[in-house]
Design a binder for these strands. Structure first.
Lengths: 222, 222
DNA sequence: TTATACTGACTGACCAGTCAGTCAGTATTT
DNA sequence: AAATACTGACTGACTGGTCAGTCAGTATAA
C-alpha cells in the first residue's frame, strides 16, 4: 500500500488534492522556499526593497539566483509573500483583542506591550518601516499592505473605539473617527529609531505609555 | 576715473572684494543655479532621492548635466542645499513662535494652521517625507536634517513645554519629555497621504485639531 | 528513462559622475 | 575704438559599475 499511496501524489489525483505525501523532492523544495523567504526578510530589512539585491538573497539562502524565480514570480511577489507571512498572525491577534470583552484601558496596555514585544522587538518593525519608506515609490506594495493588513486592523480598532465611546470608557469621541491618532506615536517611533536614534535615543515603551495616559486623560508628573 | 573703477573689477583688487558689479556672466550663472535648485526640488519630490535622475534635473532646468556638477559637488550636496533653503525659514518662524509670550493653547492652534498651510500645502511636506523615506539608506541626509532642522525645533518645543508645565498651562508633564507626541500625528499624516489617501483620504486639519483637543484635555462629541 | 529542480553566465537597461573640447564674455593692447 | 588674447562656464558623449530577470545546460529524484 505504501507504493499505491505514493503514486497518488502525481498522476491520477486532481490538482487540488495532489500535495499529499510530499516525497524527498517536494520536502527539499519547500525547505528551499522557506530559506529564500528567510534570507529575503534579512536582506530587505537591512537594505530596503529597492536596494536589496536578489543575488544577495540567493547567496544568503544558499541557492542559485534562478531558483528564486522558480518559487516567486518577481522581486515584488517575494516581498508580498514575506509581508503576508510575517504580518498575518499579528493581524489575527489584534482582531482577537479588539473583539474580546476586555476593558479598553486593559486593551491599551496590552497593545503597548504587544507592540514593544512583537513589533518593535522583531523584524515586523522593519516590515512596517519598509512599507512606509518604499511605499511611495512602489504603490502596489502600499496597496497590498492596506488590503491585507491595515484595513483589517483599522476596522477592528474603529469598531472597538465606537463601543468604548458609547459605553463611556473613553472621553474623546474623535478617536473613533481617527484611530490613526492612537497609532501615530508607534509609527513615529519606528521612523525615529531608524533615523535619529544615534543622536537622541527614544524610550519607546515609555513614549507609548505616556501617550496612552494622555488618551485616557490621566495626569502624571514627569 | 571711469577707466580706473572698471579695472578694479578684475586685476588689482583682492579676491574677497572682487565680486562687485556682477557682470552678465555672474548673473547668468546665479540664475542657472536657482533653476537647477528649483528643478531638483521638483524631481526629488516626485521621484525620491535615490530614484531621481540627474539627467532629468538637467533637462528640466534647461542645462547640461555637467553644469550641475559645476554648482554642486554631488547629488547629496544638491539635496542638502534644497533642504536648507526650503526648511530654514520655517525653523526660524517656529523658534519665534516658541519664544513669544503667547498662551500655549494659542500656539497649538497657530502651529496646526502653520503646518496645514506652510508644510502640508507646499513642497515642504515632500522634503519631510523624503527625509523619512530616504533617511534610513542615506544616513548623512538624516544627520544633516537632524542638525539643521529637527534639533532646533525640538529644543524650542521642549523649552516652551517645560514652561507650560510649570505655569500649569497643560496637565501632561510627559509632553516636555516627549515632544514627539505632539508632532506624531503630523508625521503620520504625511506618510498616510503618500501611501493610502487613494483608499482612505485623511482630513489632516481635523486630525490635528482633534489631537490638540486631546492634548489639552478637552472633550468633544464626534 | 523521463520529468523536474536547479544552476549561474549572460543580456539589456539604467545612471552617477567625468572630461576634452567649445565659445561667450572679459581684459589687454594698439 | 577695434583687434587680440585669455578665461572659465558650459556641454554631452562616454565610462565604469549595478542589477533584475532569462534560459540553455546539468543534476537528481521518480
Amino acid at each position: 500500500m505504501a507504493t499505491a499511496s505514493k503514486r497518488k501524489t502525481a498522476s491520477s489525483a486532481p490538482a487540488a488534492i495532489r500535495q499529499k505525501t510530499p516525497g524527498a523532492r517536494a520536502i527539499r523544495s519547500a525547505a528551499r522556499r522557506e530559506a529564500i523567504l528567510h534570507a529575503a526578510l534579512d536582506e530587505f530589512s537591512a537594505r530596503g526593497f529597492a536596494a536589496a539585491r536578489i543575488d544577495d538573497v540567493a547567496k544568503r539562502a544558499g541557492v542559485a539566483k534562478g531558483t528564486i524565480y522558480l518559487h516567486f514570480r518577481d522581486k515584488e511577489a517575494l516581498f508580498q509573500e514575506i509581508v503576508r507571512s510575517v504580518m498575518g498572525p499579528l493581524v489575527g491577534t489584534l482582531e482577537g483583542v479588539f473583539a474580546a470583552d476586555i476593558p479598553l484601558r486593559t486593551i491599551a496596555d496590552q497593545i503597548v506591550e504587544l507592540f514593544v514585544r512583537e513589533v518593535f522587538g522583531t523584524r515586523r518593525k522593519d516590515i512596517i518601516r519598509l512599507i512606509m519608506t518604499e511605499g511611495p515609490r512602489f504603490p502596489k506594495l502600499a496597496e497590498f499592505y492596506y488590503r491585507e493588513v491595515l484595513s483589517r486592523i483599522l476596522a477592528g480598532a474603529r469598531a472597538r473605539l465606537r463601543r468604548a465611546v458609547e459605553r463611556g470608557e473613553i472621553s474623546h469621541a474623535a478617536l473613533a473617527r481617527f484611530p490613526q491618532l492612537v497609532a501615530a506615536p508607534a509609527m513615529l517611533a519606528i521612523i525615529w529609531t531608524g533615523l535619529f536614534d544615534r543622536f537622541e535615543p527614544l524610550d519607546v515603551r515609555e513614549l507609548l505609555r505616556a501617550h496612552m495616559n494622555i488618551l485616557f486623560g490621566e495626569r502624571k508628573a514627569a
